[in-house]
Amino acid sequence: MSEPALFQSQHPKATCFSRSVSKLPLSTGLNSRDLERLETLIIERIKVKKGSALYRMGDPLRSLYAVRVGAFKTRMMSFDGCHQIIGFQVPGDMLGLEAISSGHYGCDALALEDSEVCSIHFLRLEKLSQDLPVLQHNLHKLMSHEIVRDLHMLFLTGNLNSNERLADFLLNLSQQLSTLGNSSTDFVLKMSRDDIASYLGLRLETICRCIAHLRNHALVEIVGRNVKILNIEGLRYLVAGHFESS
């Protein structure tokens, strides 16, 4: 982890989740006393500059990270040096879950824009979860969510064509943004088209053709990184294989 990439807040916990620890996915179902115990595990608030790494593949697991502000991409590198994007994370998402099984982070976590995370001490979290069955359930649920996400990607790459993959990606992103209280139909992509292509297992030129296809069928308008979904039901029909062009 390069030193210039990260810099701590002057008051690590004061403005981290002091008033919103209950919004953490780990906190679902916890009472006020247990929420206070969970908050003690938040070691520091970390700012990560755009393009910098929060952690690198192979680094030892010390903390899990809750995204507070900004966005990240996670990527793996093959033995021949090729990179594969395996996910995108937005506020409310957790980073580092893949490290629990081996004790080492299994990917790089890179900031797509100037971002901020809260560092949660993993060993202390593990110990507290033994005392709080609800917290342990929430941790298991988050890990299960990662498995479901991976299974969805296997289905997506094995069963959907390129236009359907991009439509599915935009629908999922739309739903995430809506959950965060943002517009589900008018938003700015934080990731590049190269990143999207890598994530969907497509070539960049294929992504460009897909964007043109969605535009020509009045489903989505994408200019640069600005996205405007024109027909969200049409996108759903496209992913389901039932869309008929006029």
Rank of each mutant, 00 (worst) to 15 (best):
21 V>T: 14
127 K>D: 15
63 S>N: 14
155 F>S: 15
13 K>A: 13
188 V>S: 11
88 F>A: 08
157 T>H: 12
75 R>C: 09
139 L>M: 04
224 G>I: 09
27 S>Y: 08
75 R>H: 08
172 N>S: 05
34 D>P: 00
185 T>G: 10
65 Y>R: 04
34 D>L: 07
180 L>H: 05
192 S>A: 02
19 R>H: 15
17 F>S: 12
53 A>K: 06
4 P>H: 09
113 E>T: 11
246 S>V: 08
212 A>Y: 08
160 L>R: 02
82 C>W: 02
128 L>H: 05
236 R>I: 02
25 P>S: 06
130 Q>A: 12
137 H>Q: 11
14 A>Y: 12
94 M>K: 00
236 R>S: 09
237 Y>T: 03
143 M>A: 01
137 H>I: 07
112 L>Y: 04
194 D>I: 10
179 T>M: 11
33 R>P: 00
21 V>M: 12
171 L>W: 02
221 E>N: 14
165 R>S: 10
101 S>P: 07
230 L>C: 07
90 V>W: 03
68 R>A: 10
36 E>R: 14
100 I>Q: 04
213 H>L: 10
44 E>W: 12
223 V>Q: 08
25 P>V: 14
156 L>C: 13
240 A>R: 11
84 Q>S: 08
24 L>I: 08
245 S>Y: 03
145 H>W: 01
61 L>R: 06
140 H>Y: 03
176 Q>N: 13
166 L>T: 05
166 L>D: 05
138 N>Y: 01
105 Y>F: 12
138 N>A: 00
147 I>P: 07
112 L>W: 04
135 L>R: 03
148 V>G: 06
134 V>M: 08
1 M>C: 10
94 M>T: 06
137 H>K: 14
219 L>E: 09
80 D>L: 08
150 D>P: 00
80 D>K: 10
49 K>E: 15
106 G>R: 10
198 S>T: 05
40 T>W: 10
87 G>Y: 14
197 A>F: 10
19 R>G: 14
94 M>R: 00
141 K>M: 08
102 S>A: 11
186 D>M: 03
42 I>E: 02
38 L>G: 02
244 E>L: 15
111 A>S: 08
64 L>P: 01
187 F>V: 03
75 R>L: 10
214 L>S: 07
124 R>H: 13
168 D>K: 09
56 R>F: 07
79 F>R: 00
238 L>D: 04
179 T>H: 11
72 F>Y: 10
129 S>R: 03
35 L>P: 06
112 L>T: 05
162 S>D: 02
161 N>G: 05
116 E>K: 07
66 A>S: 14
7 F>C: 12
79 F>A: 12
141 K>A: 14
190 K>R: 13
212 A>K: 14
141 K>T: 15
164 E>C: 05
6 L>V: 11
91 P>W: 02
58 G>S: 05
173 L>P: 12
98 E>D: 14
44 E>I: 09
138 N>K: 01
16 C>R: 04
196 I>E: 01
83 H>G: 12
124 R>S: 15
31 N>H: 03
240 A>N: 13
175 Q>S: 13
216 N>A: 08
194 D>M: 13
36 E>N: 12
171 L>M: 06
187 F>S: 05
107 C>A: 15
159 N>K: 11
161 N>C: 05
17 F>Q: 12
100 I>D: 02
59 D>I: 02
197 A>C: 05
236 R>G: 09
187 F>H: 02
177 L>D: 02
205 E>L: 00
245 S>I: 10
162 S>C: 01
242 H>N: 14
153 M>E: 02
